[in-house]
Amino acid sequence: MNPDRTPRHHRVGVVVPARNEADRIGHVLAGIASTVEGLPVLCLVVDDGSSDRTAEIAREHGARVFTHVINLGKGAAMKTGCAAGLAADCDVLVLMDADGQHRASDLPAIVAPILSGEADLVLGRRRFTGDMPATARLGNWGLTRLFSLMFGATYGDTQCGLRAFTSDAYHKVDWLATDYAVETEMLVRAARARLRTSEVEIDTIYHDVYKGTTMLDGLRILGQMIRLRMSGG
């Protein structure tokens, strides 16, 4: 840990939006260390209208749980988690999927560029090879290329859910999307606000039952990109 970089930051809030993830949320939370790069970590789980024991299991693993009484979508859950993180004095926020796709061991690498002052927003970049389902690989590749064409900013992976940003950056990228279009909107707002962005290559694990972005979500994201482009993105 570099002693020069900690005084500016107090606490890392790991926001985990979850819906019906009782089978995996415990494993995800158990993997998150109590400190990252010397800073205390607060796990904030947003139970987005689950009908299973997601919230209960998250609480058993020491997370603070915020429950949406009805399902609102990933974007809304992320927003609730970030608001809770800011209220709990977290000045570095990390977004992490609840389905076990991300490795908690990548957290230090994701927050490092923020703690060193190199970046305001850090994006995880998945490898579009190996275990990633073929449709997801094609969709991610297509959306990433389209994003470059439409907004002029080039990222390796515009849809990865593992991200970190400072509390100041959060106010600049604060999104309206309540669904899976949130990742794209966040990047558009980051580009508009000229945030310093960094990318970190991460490992991903794909389980038998894929619960992430579907083809319909991909079309919604495309629609959101067109809408954002028309509104001056």
Binding site: F66, T67, H68, L72, T80
Partner: peptide, 12 residues
Amino acid sequence: VELVRRLALSAE
């Protein structure tokens, strides 16, 4: 959305 989010935050 605003109502549900506020409920979630105030319920803690």
